[in-house]
Design a protein around this nucleic acid. Structure first.
Lengths: 131, 131, 131, 131
DNA sequence: GTGGTCTAGACCACG
DNA sequence: GTGGTCTAGACCACC
């Protein structure tokens, strides 16, 4: 299974879903031409409203990451891999940017920001972050 | 002065205000016993509705960062400095945590995460981040 | 139902609402996991602005009495019952305390204070106080 | 000295002052024809804005409890004693009434309300309540 | 449908 | 002058 939803996260659920699909494609866990789970199935698995999954899939189609396979469901597009790697980079950059802006505004000195960052990296071993 | 609001930020304005007050206290730009700008004045300065500022100030009272001086306005509490430094640490930690979780999930290798981070730090010189 | 608002009471409406929710939970009229009326519905029922109800509900979330069920509404938290019973006790104690302080300061002898109290208790039969 | 102000009480300061003057008259600590302290002096003693004391004195004049003695200050009126005893009774009744209403609404059983009351009475020995 | 944010403007209490 | 409450109504995001 390739993702995990945190309902008390502030980030909208539909966006968590669509991002994680992109990330899965970016890192090769989901390959072009492969089918994604049906709306119903995924909704049940994540204990989430089907509308929410549908919305995520809709967004992913708009981004040319998924495309319908007539009557069969949705599959990852051919160009998805490249696109998702680009998106991953820019999504992360963007989050990082806003974090650094805030950290700077807060007046925390650079060395302490760096310490926080290294702490965090070492606290999250790679293994547990890919359930 | 110590406020900078970004209306197209996703983060609610009232929360940007209350955070920045906390940060200002945390870094010593605003000291215990000092008065904060009046609701009306700050509202005008930020081109924002007075109710929005009032809400931020109300939240800060609930967090024991501000207290009323009857008929005079609001002042920073005695214990605010300590509290705000703690809050700053935990607010930033929290944002960093969710970033690292996402970066890891995205499958981006650690060295590239680090590169992103260093890029961002060097791209935002200290001077321009405290307007 | 469990609300009765007195607009000419001095006590702000939003606070009357949040208190009564707590009391309803404390006495078991509203149980953990149960949904509270929607903001709009309650506002209409009490002939009050929706913002006012929203504020009460916001305060209750801050007190961990309510929690959002995304897109569904607000429900009473699991720990609410215990918390509300404690709050009820302390809210009433506090009011009683300030009353007794004032009664004593006024120089009214203890036996007359007691008489006032008993009068009041017998004048408000239980039936009419839970409309 | 016959009263004591609690600034963090919710009750407006000017009202605390005027009530306590009435109570002092009611219990005979302040007698008809006696002078009350000047606005300035009392304001300084209570560490309060002179306007606040002035407002209290204004209200007391409107209630015929104080009257000006040309150029000398304010004195307690002849009819004040009777009037203040009446007011004391009705002020306390009123507070008690709203307390009982709330206690009943809260669903706390009568015997527990009574227990709270007795606790409070025994916890505040007469001596310390008249500083 | 739900709650959340924001604006605009009125009114009040306090000092 | 200060903050606080309330109303009215618009707009948005989420489910």
């Amino acid at each position: 299974m390739f993702f995990y939803i945190d309902a008390s996260n502030g980030v909208p659920i539909f966006e968590q879903i669509s991002r994680q699909v992109k990330y899965a494609v970016a890192r090769g866990a989901l390959r072009p031409q492969e089918m994604v789970p049906s709306v119903r199935e995924l909704a049940q698995r994540l204990a989430v409203n089907p509308n929410t999954v549908a919305r995520a899939y809709r967004d992913l189609q708009a981004d040319d990451v998924l495309e319908p396979l007539r009557g069969e469901g949705l599959q990852v597009t051919r160009k998805a891999a490249e696109r998702c790697r680009r998106d991953r980079q820019s999504l992360l950059r963007q989050r990082l940017h806003s974090f650094v802006v805030e950290a700077r505004q807060s007046g925390l000195p650079d060395d302490e920001i760096l310490t926080l960052f290294q702490d965090e990296l070492s606290r999250q071993p790679l293994a547990e972050s890919l359930p």
